[in-house]
Simulated scan of single mutants.
Amino acid sequence: DDVLAAADQAGIDRFVAGGVSMGAAIALRLACRHPKRVAALVMVRPAWTFAAAPPNMQPIAEVAELILEHGPDKARTIFAQTATATRLYHEAPDNLSSLLGYFDRPDAKAFAQVLANIAADGPGVSQHEVAALAIPALFVGNAMDAVHPLSSAYTLAATMPNAVFAEVTPKARDSKQHFSELHTEITTFLQSHSKVRSLIPS
């Protein structure tokens, strides 16, 4: 609703909707619910495909539960000793860094409930609805990301008939290269659909 309100205020009827992680889920839901308004999709590191509370959201749920139960300081100490933290340290250090940042927020305890709600939620769209979207779409993913699995981007791209899938360098390996490749992929996609005005929520 907020995205549509912003588009209406800007006088934009149809636009490219996109986002990263939860922003990608919002964009996908927007396209399914209001297909006449969305001309194309840009989906970067989607965390969800079709189901709510997928297993890759579990680290976020775990952090939220610890903060709500113990407060941020004690929760951080407990989390650092968990199997989840150890696994992410070796497999997805960028995810671990993001999760640790949640403990340091000044509103950590209040925000923890938001995190819990996000981890338990989903885009509220079915595979059938996504497959019916005939608009152009770009799905971008990368390896070394436990919260935003590469498989999610690939699965969604394979579901839509006019979708393009792109894999970029993981942020955890080379952040500068990651954003350079991401910029190139998005720019190329948008230029190929240059007649469409874009509005990309993050």
Rank of each mutant, 00 (worst) to 15 (best):
A5D: 12
A6W: 14
A6E: 14
A7D: 02
A7C: 15
D8I: 05
A10G: 11
I12R: 09
F15N: 05
F15M: 10
A17L: 10
A17C: 09
G19N: 06
G19V: 07
G19S: 02
A25I: 05
A27S: 15
A27Y: 06
L30M: 13
L30R: 10
C32F: 02
R33P: 00
R33S: 13
V38F: 10
V38P: 06
V42L: 12
M43F: 01
R45G: 12
R45A: 14
R45P: 00
P46K: 07
A47W: 00
A47M: 13
F50M: 09
N56T: 07
M57G: 02
Q58I: 00
A61H: 02
V63C: 04
V63N: 07
A64C: 07
H70W: 06
A75T: 07
T77S: 13
I78R: 06
A85H: 02
T86N: 11
H90C: 12
P93I: 03
D94N: 10
N95D: 15
L96E: 05
L96P: 02
S97W: 12
R105P: 03
P106C: 10
K109R: 15
F111S: 12
F111H: 13
F111C: 01
A112P: 11
A112G: 08
V114G: 05
V114S: 12
A116K: 13
N117F: 02
N117G: 15
I118V: 14
I118P: 04
A119C: 07
A119I: 04
A120F: 01
A120P: 08
G122W: 01
G124R: 03
V125H: 08
S126H: 02
H128L: 00
E129S: 09
L133P: 07
I135S: 08
I135A: 03
A137P: 08
A137N: 04
F139M: 08
G141T: 03
N142L: 09
A143G: 09
A143C: 00
D145L: 06
A146K: 11
V147Q: 12
H148S: 11
P149Y: 05
P149C: 13
L150Q: 11
S152E: 12
A153V: 09
A153P: 00
Y154L: 11
Y154V: 10
A157T: 10
A157S: 15
A158W: 00
T159K: 03
P161H: 06
P161K: 01
A163G: 12
A163M: 06
A163P: 09
V164P: 00
E167L: 13
V168C: 04
P170E: 05
R173K: 13
R173M: 09
D174F: 06
D174Q: 04
D174M: 04
K176M: 11
Q177W: 06
S180N: 11
S180T: 14
S180R: 15
E181I: 00
E181G: 07
L182S: 09
T184G: 08
T187G: 01
T187C: 01
T188L: 06
F189T: 07
S192E: 13
H193V: 00
H193E: 00
S198N: 10
P201F: 12
